[in-house]
Simulated assay, not measured.
Amino acid sequence: MKIKKVFNNNVVLTEDVNQVEMVVMGRGLSFQKKVGDSIDTERIEKTFVMPSESFANKLSELLDEIPYEIMSLSKDIIDLATKELQTELNESLYLSLADHIHFALTRLHEGLSIKNALMWEVQKFYKEEYRVARKALDLIEARTKVRLPEDETASIALHLFNARQDSAGMEETMEMTNIVNDVTTIVKYHYGIDFEEESMNYSRFITHLRYFAYRMLRGELNDDHQDALYEQVKSQYPKAYACTEKVQAYLNKQYKMEMTKEELTYFMIHIHRVSYREKSE
């Protein structure tokens, strides 16, 4: 493997035998080396494929500010998350997570504490990501001897969830979380119930809400004009219909958005199911 670009003494751009570009990391890997020199593969500690040239440029900028130890730590957290969540994560997470961890450690060192306003919602709605984020905090503490505040668990969990979405931005992810929280609150007070958050039914309801909010914010809602099914469900579940009308009013007021009959039908079915089982139990 030959060096195509030197980022710093520990990180270089190279390519494999199939001419696929990749970044390789290792302490002192490129010390006193230049473009065209060979790499000692035994010193490589981390490897990942380059998704784009812009990614390489952003990485280069980040490496000027962030220590190698934090970059390596971030890669290990991403590897852990990929295994625990059993999914591929967007490569951009490598940049955003390293930047976030470095900034969080810097803030803590300077005595600055920033609360995560979505702490409760993230813990409630993104349980798997939150669980992995707790492990990430443990790993950060083990490597840096610094325990980040508990609010950072929610922040890291949001980064993980964001990386699971098809190029969704962090701002969009946070907006999705607010929508899910507000809609569940509407349902909760409409029926006067507390949800059993560990139940499969509640999990299905939250999953539907998350993907509905995701599609809504991107303008991807479709209507198959299932008028007959809509009228049938509306007649069969009048209380779920009334609740869905409240959700529609909220979305219209906050986002100037009208749900399609298809979405209204799905909402009535999900709301009836989650409320009926909660009442029964």
Rank of each mutant, 00 (worst) to 15 (best):
M119H: 13
H109F: 12
N116Q: 06
E110A: 10
I140V: 07
M176T: 11
D138H: 05
M170E: 12
T185L: 15
V122W: 04
G169D: 15
E175I: 13
R107I: 05
D138C: 03
E121W: 11
A163M: 05
I140H: 01
F103S: 09
N90D: 03
A98N: 00
V180M: 11
E128Y: 00
A98K: 00
K135C: 02
I156W: 13
I186H: 00
S96W: 14
H159M: 13
A133P: 01
R143T: 12
V122C: 02
T173P: 09
V132P: 01
E150G: 04
A133F: 08
K188E: 03
E110H: 12
E141V: 04
L108C: 04
A117G: 14
I179P: 00
L89R: 06
R134P: 02
A104T: 03
M174N: 09
K188W: 10
R143Q: 15
D99S: 13
F161A: 12
A98I: 03
H109A: 09
P149M: 08
L93R: 04
Q123C: 10
S155D: 08
V180F: 08
L137A: 07
I156Y: 10
A117S: 14
F161C: 12
M119G: 02
N178L: 14
R164Q: 05
S96Q: 08
D182G: 02
A136R: 07
K188R: 10
L108I: 10
F125G: 00
T185C: 12
Y130N: 01
D182P: 03
V180I: 11
R143C: 10
R143P: 06
L97Q: 05
A157H: 09
L93W: 10
A104F: 06
E91Q: 13
D138G: 09
L93F: 07
N181G: 08
I101F: 02
T106E: 12
E171M: 15
S92T: 15
E84N: 06
T87W: 03
L112R: 07
R131Q: 02
S92C: 12
A104E: 06
T184G: 00
L158E: 14
L105P: 06
F125E: 01
Q123S: 09
Q123W: 14
Y94W: 13
S113E: 09
N162R: 14
A133C: 11
A136P: 02
K135E: 09
V187A: 00
L93E: 05
A142L: 15
W120G: 00
L158V: 15
L108T: 11
